[in-house]
């Protein structure tokens, strides 16, 4: 068995709504004890609908928010986010957000976006930083002349490429992808998914891929976890989950995904004629 990059044990996260002068503070449990393991070079997809806690889980794995309880283990090292994260550890986990329009600083040129992680985390000379940023730009399918442009000059798909490039600048071990293609058009979505697959092969990256789109998950994932109200109701290899879903909610989710094969269209049209 190969090495485990990410492991969580019973991860819990509570949110406390601010109690006012006349109100009691209320506690909401967003994530209710999630345990998972991801091997190097594999992709774990986390599926669920809005409000199921999948983004909260992503923020804990990326060490943005500390967990209320439970253990987060990255590369065999136990992490205590609340006590502060070492730069070395911070470097290992990077994130790509859903909305390509909000994830880039509108006042920062693309070159600066890519070089910022290096400025913060390394003491490379400016020429070397520039060189590395240029290389990464080419790697994600953009051109050197894009280096000095501002984010608003790019389309959604291109921005997502830039966001991926930024995440890779520090050679992370683990990439958390929070719905990276759900804001993109279908044809662009395919390009970005291909890019992600290529990068995974090249750098041996491990992905945690968060999505609500089952067809994307089926395409990209090795393992799948289905979340429902903060709990993992289904967790297994892709083929197991898709061919033999155990939990009621997973079945509902599958049934709700639109079918595009010709047989189901024909059946639907037949039903319609019968009803009319």
């Amino acid at each position: 068995m190969s090495e485990i990059v990410l492991e969580t044990r019973n991860l819990v996260r509570d949110y406390t709504t601010a109690g006012g002068m006349f109100r009691q503070a209320k506690t909401v449990r967003a994530v209710k004890g999630i345990s998972l393991k991801v091997e190097k070079g594999k992709t774990l997809a986390i599926v669920g609908e809005s409000g199921c806690g999948k983004s909260t889980l992503a923020r804990m794995i990326t060490m943005i928010d500390p967990p209320t309880a439970g253990d987060l283990i990255i590369d065999g090292q136990k992490v205590d986010t609340a006590k502060g994260v070492s730069p070395e550890l911070r470097r290992k986990v990077q994130i790509v957000f859903q909305n390509p329009y909000g994830s880039l600083n509108p006042r920062q040129k693309i070159g600066d976006v890519l070089m910022e992680p290096l400025i913060i985390n390394s003491d490379l000379p400016a020429s070397e930083r520039r060189h590395r940023a240029m290389e990464m730009l080419k790697k994600v399918g953009l051109a050197p002349e894009h280096f000095n442009r501002y984010p608003h000059m790019f389309s959604g798909g291109q921005r997502q490429r830039i966001a991926i490039a930024r995440a890779l600048m520090l050679n992370p071990r683990l990439l958390v992808l929070d719905e990276p293609v759900s804001a993109l058009d279908l044809s662009v979505q395919a390009q970005v998914l291909n890019l992600l697959a290529d990068l995974q092969d090249e750098f041996g990256l491990t992905y945690v891929f968060i999505s609500h789109d089952l067809s994307v998950v089926r395409y990209i994932a090795d393992e799948v976890m289905v979340m429902y109200f903060g709990e993992a109701v289904e967790y297994g290899t892709r083929d197991d989950v898709f061919s033999n879903p155990q939990h009621e909610y997973t079945k509902t989710l599958f049934a709700a995904t639109p079918r595009t094969d010709v047989e189901s269209i024909r059946a639907r049209l037949a039903r319609k004629t019968a009803a009319a």
Binding site: F154, S155, S187, V188, A190, Q191, N194, A197, D213, I220
Partner: peptide, 29 residues
């Protein structure tokens, strides 16, 4: 380009079929 219709390892993207230059600029703005 629908992931459920994927056959091989890669998804065919629009550029494989149509309009080379669209792909270079990342598709529709």
């Amino acid at each position: 380009a629908l992931p459920e219709n994927a056959t091989g390892d890669r998804l065919p993207s629009v550029s494989d079929y149509f309009l080379e230059e669209e792909a270079v600029t990342g598709g529709a703005a």
